[in-house]
Design a protein around this nucleic acid. Structure first.
Length: 901
RNA sequence: GGACACAUAGCUCAGUUGGUUAGAGCGCACGGUUCACAUCCGUGAGGUCGUAGGUUCGACUCCUAUUGUGUCCACCA
């Protein structure tokens, strides 16, 4: 077989697309098509990216970690799968398209295009982005099972959404209610509590009285809403006011009708804060609305409309004004009437819509909700209970069905969030999304579920029917993602085989949005958990720690990074140095480093392929013939085990560190150099390289698969097994036993001693500024290590560039040499008069001080009886051995110093 | 107001149940055109692990307090 020449540098661009196609064509991304007897499943539901934009670095990061996990598990012999998909992202997408349309001059898209017309526009946009994103995911090398590609808004997923709605509606968990909700005036739609972003703003808090005779002053930041006040709440323990509880006061503040203000008691009122009393506006505050629900007779007066302007109930002076205009007018009126007391600037959090960006109004209206506290028929628990159970006792108390959250700290954050959870408002007044499958009959007022257009009312057979205008919150459909993607509600094979899914990863920013809702939907619908393990990751930040954002213009397009450095380099740089739950910084130098490493691996392969006689696959571990062989094989064995251990724990970064160290330091910098000296190592070189490719494949699939293809293997690397190496060294033991005077039980000595010796010799050269081309002589006084070192003479001489090397057990110390001590070996480098005596003395003295200090520390530690008594014997013995070596080293250094002359 | 995270070499970060002379990459210094790789190699200098206490034979690691940074939740009426 001819020798194989690789290009001098790895050119990612030239091979990646073809390799991805090769993988896709193999069908191995589909676990049903994987060869061999695979018992276990490993399933990841891909968090579906929103069709609002194109993929950014955050997506690239998620793709990288998912693909590392799934490729590793595939190599572990599992039926491994990533189920890919995209999210129609209801509000986000419609908001995006509407704003694009406005930029094109269509000022009121909903009116001008109508429902069908606007939906068509959004659909066009969404379909376009879907295909762009799928292309990007493929560029990342992600091994998704494309035959199972899903979309939250496609036919099967809509079916699942309707079926869940039907069940929850039948169970009374979904209800229509008149409640205060978050309303975006700009978006003309509700938002759930979680879709709010809080901004700190300065605002004025005004203190005033409703009338001259009203007994309690009230403070507010929203004076205009006071036109709809119906009560004042005080703490029942507040002796200033509690005698007033139950009294009613009629005040005229200029609203349409005089207000009847009832004094009510509420334990939550802080009597030490402000005036100790709260004006209650049931229509425009969630908390006040809750008070109203407990005291319905106080009444509720909405004064602000959906357009953000004052309603007739606010009075003829106010109707039609914006809230800010009304605020100013009302404050002026208070001042005129001498009801105004004071004002103060404070910092205040206001909720804004995360999609439309405007300050949301709290408005009371009829909306659809999911009741999280109601007991579910036949199950004796609420949705909240189910959401808690899944992460604590296990679903239905089943310990096998506990969701493990990694890192653990998010466990409590999640539970705390559930405690604060209110009923989930699921209806949105936009058009892009799953339309609520509820119908109203005009003749008999029946409200009923139907997922198709019904011909007649099931109750009165009337044909005067209309469907609810609203659509569902996008998280309603994504909550069902792990099972809607597997064919539910059909009785599918996939559901039996692949649900619950195995592993889920997500950013902490969607923990509540998504994880909580998946748990809610799945435990309710399937009576099971959606996944077993969740890995929470942080966000990527720029080098200065700021978020990547469009407005800052500091974003990096993953595709551009791939174009410049290759996908493998991008993947590696995204994952390296990242720990679960923590943010990490990403910048181009990191990618450059990763690209350099990928190229290093390429060049290692290039060298091996060009030197071996027959570049073929080595199936069985070759016999170690030399100490260095044994060393590299054991290091390979260790590395495969420990890197696998990291990956089993989803410690991706840890695995990368171990693999990098082995690849560069051990294999390239030492073993390849040794191979040039010892020769005749084709089999081991190929074997280590091929296993190295297996170990690296999950992280950098393209370059490894490309190199693998040069060996004429039957299989693609992606379905090769994760290495299990057993070092064969019996013949070597027989060979060296006599040379090294080993007894039967003794282990092979470590090759590390040879490495240390070489490093020390190099150090002596470098410290004395010896021209690297110059060959020098060295003497090693090595005691019982002499035999070992002698057997490695060739390696020592070539790597340390020696022209002569003497190794003795003991003997006369040579004069005028640069000298040092390592692991009981005295090392002398004969610099033939080039030695700088003063510099040498200084260096030796420094070494000596250090050794003595170290020895003294150990001595004191061992002199401490408490230590010897309490510490485990192994630790004490370890310290004793260290002390002995340090003392010996110090002695030898002293002699070397005196020999300097 | 409540909670959580982070603070380790100039920079970005590892450090897994308490026992290492505290590590890596980049950067820096010095030296290298050795026929795999300058997208490289060799050698080296940099840290009293934010601060103060405590527990322990022993603390980067556990506890308490404190400072700084960041995040989440609640929210003032």
């Amino acid at each position: 077989m001819a020798k194989i020449e690789l290009a001098k540098a790895y050119e990612a661009k030239e091979v990646e697309d073809a390799l991805y196609k090769k993988w896709e064509d193999s069908d191995y991304f589909n676990p049903d098509k994987l060869p061999g007897d695979r018992q276990e499943e490993f399933v990841i539901s891909m968090p579906p990216p929103n069709v609002t934009g194109i993929l950014h670095l955050g997506h690239a990061f998620e793709n990288a970690i998912m693909d590392v996990a799934v490729r590793y598990q595939r190599m572990q012999g599992k039926r491994a799968m990533i189920v890919p998909g995209t999210d129609h992202a209801a509000v986000a997408t419609q908001a995006r398209v509407e704003s694009d349309l406005k930029a094109q001059g269509i000022n009121n898209p909903r009116q001008e295009l109508g429902r069908e017309g606007l939906i068509a526009k959004v659909r066009e946009f969404a379909e376009n982005h879907k295909s762009i994103m799928i292309g990007q995911i493929k560029k990342m090398g992600t091994s998704c099972d494309w035959s199972r590609l899903a979309y939250t808004f496609d036919e099967p997923r809509s079916k699942a959404v309707n079926e869940i709605f039907r069940r929850m509606f039948a169970d009374g968990l979904i209800y229509r209610g008149y409640r205060v909700v978050n309303w975006s005036v700009k978006g003309q739609s509700t938002c759930s509590d979680d879709e709010l972003e809080y901004e700190t703003r300065k605002t004025t808090v005004y203190t005033f009285k409703y009338s001259d005779t009203f007994p309690i002053p009230i403070a507010t930041t929203r004076p205009e809403t006071k036109l709809g006040d119906t009560a004042v709440a005080v703490n029942p323990d507040d002796e200033r006011y509690n005698h007033l509880i139950g009294q009613k006061f009629t005040v005229d503040v200029g609203a349409e009708n005089p207000l009847v203000i009832t004094i009510i008691g509420d334990k939550n009122v802080d009597m030490n804060y402000g005036t100790g009393a709260v004006g209650v506006t049931p229509a425009h505050s969630q908390i006040d609305f809750e008070m109203y629900q407990n005291n319905k007779d106080i009444g509720i007066i909405p004064v602000i409309g959906k357009d953000g302007r004052m309603l007739p109930a606010a009075g003829k002076d106010y109707v039609g004004l914006t809230v800010l205009e009304a605020r100013e007018k009302f404050v002026n009126w208070l001042k005129e009437k001498n009801l105004y007391i004071s004002e103060e600037e404070i910092e205040h959090n206001v909720g804004t819509s995360d999609r439309f960006k405007d300050v949301v109004e709290a408005l009371p209206m009829d909306q659809w909700f999911i009741d999280v506290n109601k007991e579910i028929a036949g199950r004796g628990k609420s949705l909240k209970d189910l959401m808690r159970e899944a992460v604590t006792s296990g679903h239905n108390g089943d310990k096998e069905k506990i969701i493990k959250i990694n890192p653990e700290r998010f466990h409590n954050i999640y539970l705390q969030w559930i405690d604060n959870l209110r009923d989930w408002c699921i209806s949105r007044q936009i058009w892009w999304g799953h339309r609520i499958p509820i119908w109203y009959c005009a003749d008999c007022n029946e409200i009923f579920y139907s997922d198709v257009t019904p011909e007649t009312c099931p109750k009165c057979e009337s044909t005067k029917l209309r469907q609810d205008e609203d659509t569902l919150d996008t998280w309603f459909s994504s909550g069902a993602w792990t099972f809607s993607t597997l064919g539910w509600p059909e009785d599918s094979e996939d559901m039996k085989k692949y649900h619950p899914t195995t592993w889920m990863q997500m950013g902490y920013e969607i923990l509540f949005f998504w994880m909580a809702r998946m748990i809610l939907m799945t435990t309710y619908t399937l009576d099971d958990i959606p996944f077993k393990d969740v890995y929470i990751h942080g966000i990527l930040r720029a080098k200065d720690g700021r978020k990547f954002s469009k407005s800052l213009g500091n974003g990096l397009d993953p595709l551009e990074v791939i174009e410049k450095y290759g996908t493998d380099a991008l993947r590696l740089s995204l994952i390296k140095g990242v720990t679960a739950g923590n943010d990490s910084r990403f910048y181009e130098e990191k990618v450059e480093g990763a690209r350099n490493f990928v190229n290093k691996l390429w060049n290692i392969s290039r060298y091996i392929l060009s030197t071996v006689d027959d570049a073929t696959i080595i199936k069985d571990a070759p016999e170690a013939k030399t100490l260095s062989d044994e060393w590299i094989m054991s290091r390979l064995e260790q590395t495969a085990k420990s890197a696998g251990g990291c990956l089993d724990k989803y410690d991706f970064s840890g695995a990368i560190e171990l693999l990098t160290e082995f690849t560069r330091d051990d294999f390239a910098d030492w073993y390849l150099e040794i191979a040039k000296i010892e020769k005749d190592k084709d089999e081991i070189l190929l074997y280590v390289l091929q296993n190295l490719l297996r170990l690296w494949h999950p992280f950098i699939p393209f370059v490894t698969e490309e190199i693998w293809s040069k060996f004429g293997a039957e299989n693609l690397l992606m379905i090769e097994a994760w290495p299990r190496v057993a070092v064969k060294k019996e013949k070597l033991m027989d060979k060296v036993k006599d040379i090294l005077h080993l007894s039967e039980e003794e282990q092979l000595p470590s090759f590390d001693l040879v490495k240390q010796s070489v490093t020390s010799l190099r150090n002596l050269r470098s410290e004395n500024k010896i021209d690297p081309a110059r060959m020098v002589k060295a003497i090693l006084i090595a005691g019982d290590k002499a035999g070992l070192l002698e057997s490695q003479q060739d390696v020592l001489m070539k790597l340390a560039r020696l022209e002569k090397l003497e190794i003795v057990e003991s003997g006369e110390k040579p004069k005028g040499c640069a000298a040092t001590v390592i692991s009981g070996i005295e090392i002398y480098l004969d610099l033939a008069g080039l030695i700088d005596i003063e510099a040498e003395r200084a260096r030796l003295e420094k070494d000596l001080v250090e050794a003595e200090k170290y020895a003294k520390g150990l001595q004191m530690k061992l002199a401490n009886e408490e230590f010897v008594k309490n510490a485990p014997a192994s630790v004490v013995d370890g310290e004793r051995a260290k002390l002995q070596e340090a003392q010996a080293k110090a002695e030898k250094l002293k002699l070397q110093l005196s020999d300097l002359g």
